[in-house]
């Protein structure tokens, strides 16, 4: 079975500029890697597998092509772990306010 079929929400990847096509005015760590891009949209092709060159229709209806890299891409940023460096601030400042 194909990884994605027409209408699925997917993400594509594009290399916008290879290192030698990039601006000259860059730190070497940036100049040595390609300039890349990811865009989400609905698959236009009948079906496709990861790594295939595909077309998508973006949320505003434009058609863009690139390499299929994710199907049903999820937002996975989160609230982070509790930070012990912050947890006692509440008690500390309340104690200070009580003293005054």
């Amino acid at each position: 079975m194909a990884d994605a079929k027409r209408g699925d929400l997917v993400q594509i990847h594009k290399i916008v500029l290879e290192p030698d096509e990039r601006s000259d005015n860059l730190p070497s760590c940036t100049k040595s890697v390609p300039y890349e891009c990811w865009i989400k949209g609905f698959l236009v092709d009948e079906d496709a597998d990861m790594g295939d060159e595909v077309s998508i229709r973006t949320f505003i209806g434009r058609e863009i092509s690139g390499v299929l890299c994710q199907v049903n891409p999820m937002y996975d940023h989160n609230f982070g772990e509790p930070q012990k460096e912050l947890l006692s601030i509440d008690t500390e400042v309340r104690r200070q306010l009580e003293r005054t």
Binding site: V16, L17, T30, Y35, K40
Partner: peptide, 30 residues
């Protein structure tokens, strides 16, 4: 950065087409 990933989410929540790019001033070229 988690802060920027949240911004991608927000833009897409409002129905925008978002181009997520790597580091570089070539953003202006795009």
């Amino acid at each position: 950065q988690p802060e920027i990933l949240e911004k991608t989410r927000a833009c897409e929540a409002y129905g925008a087409e978002v181009w997520q790019l790597t580091v570089g001033p070539e953003l202006f070229y795009i």
